[in-house]
Write a protein that binds this DNA or RNA. Structure first.
Lengths: 155, 155
DNA sequence: TTCAGTGCAAAACTTTTGCAGTGAG
DNA sequence: CTCACTGCAAAAGTTTTGCACTGAA
């Protein structure tokens, strides 16, 4: 399900969009991103490659591709909308409200319970969105984040 | 758990906030609202009562009371943030994409799993948002929605 | 009396749009 | 050749902030 940069041409064609140079760079940059950049941050990155790309072009590209379902637009908390390519399996998000970091996770058990709830009400699920807003725990640190902390402190 | 206008004074006192005339009108107006107004709409309503209340006062009040947990701030889709008083127990939402109906539900089990996920990553939960987008199931209809369906068809 | 809260104006921030020119199909 | 797309600038929309004044506690 992963999107390869070589797929961009096909994706545009399939959606009736022209593959222009700015658009190619914007999508490639978003594919490379492991975080969930907002439009301004993405613009900052693409302009290191091609300095004349306008912020409005970034916005227009993000709007167009979100509408086609190629990208997902997230409204986490207050700030600007943040984007990611739909290139992996479905996942939900932990949002660290202190740092703004977003951590992806997946819980088959929660999804099973959602199915159950929907069924109990006579529905079937079309899609869902689960966002857990968190802050670093006071007492303990998990093995996962402890490892991340060591890595970051090591630089 | 419902908030009565007479509780506003106590709510402010308990949270270390002064009960001013603008603040009282703003909270009363939000309590009356059955929708989820944004700041501008709320300002429009309060100024019909007291025309000199500033939009910035509405924002500051909404920010202050959201931080205290008296209000909930929602970022639905793109537009401005929308607010509601926290006068019932926490709930999540099933959104029927066909009819637009919103059904509130609560799952202690899902919330417990969320706690677990956050803890595993070294975080504690600040808040969460779960929206399940659904459509009526093909085969069966639950007792709950069958009863609702009869009620709505009866009019 | 004190300082949290206010109104007003201006700024900051996010996103959209008008327009004339360009290049993908 | 067309017109979808672009860069630029300006506008629109949302939220925050500086400041001097007011009034709740």
């Amino acid at each position: 399900m992963t999107i390869d940069p070589s797929d961009i041409k096909r994706i545009c064609r399939d959606n009736g969009l022209r593959l222009t140079a700015p658009r190619k760079i914007i999508v490639e940059t978003l594919l490379e991103a492991t975080d969930h950049p907002d439009a301004v941050e993405l613009h900052r990155r693409v302009t290191t490659i091609s300095p004349r790309i306008a912020l409005s072009t970034v916005y227009r590209t993000l709007v167009a591709l979100s509408e086609k379902g190629v990208l997902e637009k997230h409204n986490f908390g207050n700030g600007p909308a943040r984007f990611e390519t739909v290139d992996r399996e479905h996942h939900d998000h932990l949002i660290d409200v202190v740092s703004g970091n977003v951590i992806e996770f997946r819980s088959g058990e929660i999804e099973r319970l959602q199915e159950e709830i929907a069924r109990q009400h006579g529905y079937e699920i079309v899609s869902h969105k689960l966002e857990i807003y968190v802050r670093p725990a006071k007492r303990r640190r998990s093995k996962i984040s402890a490892a991340r902390h060591r890595r970051q402190s090591a630089k």
